[in-house]
Every structure is written in C-alpha cells, then in structure tokens.
Amino acid sequence: MNESIQVIISTLPFILKGTFVTLRLVLSALAVGFVLGLLLAIGQVYGKKILARAISLYIWFFRGLPNLVLLFLFYFGLFPLLGLDVSAFTIAVIALGLRSSAYQSQIFRGSIQSLGSGQMMAARSLGMTNIQAILNIILPQALRISIPGWSNEYPILLTDSAVTYAIGVMEILTRGSLVVSRTYQPMPIYLTCTVIFILLNYGGMKILHILEDKYRIPGFGNMEM
C-alpha cells in the first residue's frame, strides 16, 4: 500500500503534465469541430443542393470511421505521403477535430431547423441579408438550443483523446503507460489516470451547465414544475 502511494506521488508531476496535453488536445479539437461544424450545418441548411450533397458526403466519411483508423490514416499515411512533417499532437487535433465537426454539424443543423422558417422570413422581411439574418437571428438562438446536445461532445472528445496514445501523443494515458512500463505498478498508476479523467470531465460539465444557465432565454423552453 505504502509503496503504491510512493509511486503515485513520485510520478504524479510527470503524469499531470499529460493533463495539459490532453486539455489542449480536447479544447483544440472541440474548437476545430465547432467552427467547421457550424459552417457545415449552415451550408447544409442554407446552401445550394450540390454543396449540401458534398457536406453529407463529408459527414458520412468522418462519422463512419473509427478514431484509431483515422489517426493511423493521417499519421502513417496521408501526412507522410504529402511530405508534411507535422507533430503527432497536431495530427491528433486535426483528426479528432474533423471527426468532431461531422458530429457537431448535426447538432447545429438540428437546432437551426428546429427554429422553423418563420424566424428567417421575419429577418429577411425587414431587409436583412441572408448572412445578417444567420448571424443576428438564427445562430444566437440555434447555439443556445445546441448547448445540451453539444455538451456531449466534451466528454466524448475527452475519452477519445486517450486513443492518441497509439500515435504517441504525450497525453495522460501515454504518460501513465510509460510509468507503468518502468515501475510495473499498473493499478495505482491507472487509478491516477482514472481520477484525472473523471475530474476533467466533472469540471467541463460544470462549466457547460453554467453556460446553459447564463444563456437561457427568460420564459423560453425551461419547464418549471
């Protein structure tokens, strides 16, 4: 028992460094997925037919592949083929981000479509351009509606981030495994990893709840019983 605590204490700084890598990876991928996902959703709802088709294809591709396949494809295939010398971390952000964008786009699309055509019509009837209407009327509402569904994306990406172990990104699990291979103490080390993941998850969900509360529209959509 004492030995276990000793191992945890002595290796914690090393593993904790991975926490920052994981957080950076998750937040970057979320950001990539958010921006792309939003554009994809807008394109799918308001774009020309051919654009909407192309976007469907993109979504079908990225939702259909396991993370690990995508990571290997990019890390061992695509990027070396293009002669690009890119870090494993960057590749992980791109792969997870693109995949997340496909998922996020459907959350946003659902929210946009749930608004109905009346909001857009009213905005256009006042003389707003399409873009003005999307930015000032559609998105502020759609994004609010998206928060509950979107709050899935954070824990999904957080848990998915551990897969990047396979291409050697120095995140929590990779560091933990390195420690295990040195100390032969899997239980305390993986338990440490577990606790870190759970805390990260808890913190993130807390922040999302605060956001949801802050942006709630008075008298709208919240049932007080």
Partner: peptide, 8 residues
C-alpha cells in the same frame, strides 16, 4: 400570423 418575433 405567428408573429415570428425573435425569441432571444
């Protein structure tokens, strides 16, 4: 008919 006020 349905007002279409901007809800936010």
């Amino acid at each position: 008919q349905n007002f279409n006020l901007f809800d936010h």
